[in-house]
């Protein structure tokens, strides 16, 4: 015991000295009330992260987009309403839309999900995938509450709602209204509208919606259900 105490004292002194030395030799410091504090320049790397995830989403790489958000904010599903942190809101939107466009299937990201979410969030079962779609709708609705006149969000919410049986009717109503005013903001939403019209037996309307989808889309194949983008297979 005595031996141990003797050997640990110099180590403690050394550690303290090293810590003090590091502080004293910090490259930049600012005086504050007579004391010295190391200047810390906080860089929010989420800015680049969310920009990159948004780009992935826009270019059809839904899983890549979802993966970036989850890696950046692992606890993101804990948000039940819009945050005062705009990056969190942008992340919520990306994940919700990416999940909806993937049919709730995020199983390829399972290894990256927090263990307590792995079962449900990965979308391994039909129930889990439906639950993911419901989460997408809920998240987009929460965002819509704080941005009622954001028509992009409105379009994306309707697109997500179109994937759930219980919200299809409302989705179609919203998308039809937006289409009449030429305010549907994505080809994916036209694809959803096309499917809803087809289910209602409106084949001409379906053809028209899919034509708009093909005109707008970078890759017209997404309008025919072949949504896999490069690197997404």
């Amino acid at each position: 015991m005595t031996t141990h105490s003797r050997s640990s004292t110099p180590a403690l002194v050394f550690a303290l000295a090293a810590a003090l030395g590091l502080t004293m030799t910090a490259p930049r410091a600012e005086a504050c009330g007579g004391g010295w504090w190391p200047e810390v320049q906080a860089i929010d790397y989420r800015v680049q992260g969310i920009a990159s995830a948004e780009k992935d989403l826009a270019e059809g790489r839904h899983l890549a987009a979802a993966g970036k958000v989850i890696r950046m904010i692992p606890h993101i599903r804990a948000y039940s309403k819009a945050s005062s942190d705009l990056i969190v809101n942008r992340s919520l939107r990306v994940l919700a839309v990416a999940s909806a466009r993937s049919g709730g299937d995020l199983s390829k990201l399972a290894d990256e999900l927090p263990s307590d979410l792995k079962e449900s969030f990965a979308g391994m079962s039909d129930e889990a995938r439906t639950e993911n779609l419901r989460w997408s709708v809920k998240a987009l609705k929460a965002l819509r509450k704080s941005k009622k006149d954001d028509v992009t969000l409105k379009t994306e919410l309707a697109e997500a709602m179109a994937a759930l049986p219980e919200t299809k009717a409302k989705a179609r109503k919203t998308l039809e209204k937006l289409a009449r005013k030429d305010l549907i903001t994505t080809p994916e939403a036209y694809r959803a509208l096309g499917r809803l019209r087809a289910e209602a037996g409106n084949t001409d309307g379906e053809a028209h919606a899919l034509e708009r989808c093909r005109t707008m889309a970078r890759d017209a194949a997404i309008c025919d259900g072949q949504a896999a983008a490069p690197g997404e297979s």
Binding site: A58, I184, T186
Partner: peptide, 12 residues
């Protein structure tokens, strides 16, 4: 009016 992305540019 938002011209920062394709989606937003469609938003009227």
């Amino acid at each position: 009016i938002n011209f920062t992305s394709y989606e937003h540019a469609q938003g009227g």
